[in-house]
């Protein structure tokens, strides 16, 4: 634990060298850094003793110092985590459905790089399942389910640590809202994750996203002008590579402007646990298992059989027929029986 005494008599120059992330704290607290940085922190903060500054900021020196210590501790902890501390598997232990009946599965373990689909009518309890995972339920949520991390009773650090969320989410109705180019956007995200080699991360994500997207885009393209498929591609590549969350929840991926198979491969290749809510048979069959939800509970867990998996190529053929027809319509052409081809 860093204490106020550890930092207050160091100079800003020394502190920034020791804690390269610290200028971000000054920036967010609107503490200006355009003067001499060889001044001791405690002296730099002297201006906060003025009544007017205190009134404006509603914060005095000791509060700023205390807050800074907490921040430094958090960032050091964040940087100190390594792969081994990560999540290798999650295990769901049954609870009850809305009627209080026991859920119909023994125990379900999902490992890194596995894809598990979630199916069931809207309102059947998909969000609750997800929330249970995110909250690392210990029999203390409305479903009484428990969630184990790496086979052990969940660590509640996952519950309240905002920099360390267990689940990253991608869904159809998510949009980019920031006024940034693709480059600036990835850069900003990388900075917030305290990434060291930002350039190479930007290039990696950019290349992967373009690989997934049907139509190519540039680093200088504003993110708000990306097409639906391009946005999805960038979101998936960015989440796969930059998000620290070990679990990725996908809520449908529309089959337009993005290579869905490769998108899943990318997430799996980055060792994510992938949960996918979908009723699209092609996506569902790409999963290793699927969880069927009914009446607020897990009704059963189905393993994708070889027989089902063999259907995938037929389904993809049918899908491409429809896609081609769609393109023809767009071009103002006529659709014919031959287009169907079987």
């Amino acid at each position: 634990m860093i204490t106020i005494n550890d930092i207050q008599s160091k100079t800003l120059t020394d502190l920034f060298e020791k804690y390269p992330f610290l200028p971000g704290f000054f920036e967010e607290h609107t503490l200006e850094l355009n003067g001499n940085l060889d001044i001791k922190l405690v002296n730099y903060l002297d201006f906060l003793d003025e009544e007017e500054e205190q009134e404006n900021r509603a914060m005095d020196k000791s509060q700023v110092l205390g807050s800074m210590c907490t921040y430094i501790d958090q960032m050091l902890a964040f940087l100190g985590e390594d792969e081994d501390d990560g999540v290798h598997s999650i295990t769901l232990l049954p609870g009850t459905n809305k009627s209080g009946e026991a859920e119909q599965f023994g125990e379900l373990t999902i490992k890194k790089s596995e894809i598990v689909c979630i199916v069931g009518p809207t309102g059947s309890g998909k969000s609750r399942l997800l929330a249970d995972i995110e909250w690392v339920a210990q029999g203390d949520t409305p479903t009484s389910r428990s969630v184990l991390i790496n086979g052990e009773a969940g660590d509640s650090k996952w519950r309240l640590n905002s920099g360390n969320k267990l689940v990253a989410q991608l869904s159809q109705n998510m949009n980019f809202v920031m006024d940034l180019t693709v480059y600036e956007f990835i850069e900003l995200h990388a900075q917030s994750r305290l990434v060291e080699d930002i350039e190479s991360v930007i290039n990696k994500i950019f290349a992967q996203a373009n690989d997934l997207a049907g139509e190519k885009f540039e680093l200088s393209t504003p993110i708000t002008s990306l097409s639906g498929g391009q946005s999805r591609a960038l979101m998936i590549a960015d989440t796969a590579i930059l998000s620290k969350s070990p679990i990725v929840l996908i809520d449908e991926i529309e089959n337009a402007g993005i290579d869905r198979k490769r998108a899943l491969d990318l997430l799996v290749g980055e060792e994510k646990i992938v949960l996918m809510a979908t009723h699209d048979p092609i996506l569902a069959l790409m999963g290793d298992k699927r969880i069927v939800i009914k009446n607020g509970g897990i009704h059963k867990v189905i393993e994708t059989s070889d027989e089902e998996q063999n259907l995938l190529s037929d389904l993809e053929r049918m899908d491409s027929v429809v896609q081609k027809m769609r393109n023809r319509l767009r071009q103002g052409e006529i659709i014919k029986k031959e287009d169907i081809g079987f």
Binding site: S162, M174, N175, F176, V177, H189, T239, S243
Partner: peptide
């Protein structure tokens, strides 16, 4: 629910 994962992470 309406912004990207990255924007959520940056904002948080």
């Amino acid at each position: 629910d309406i912004v990207s994962q990255a924007e959520r992470e940056v904002f948080a």
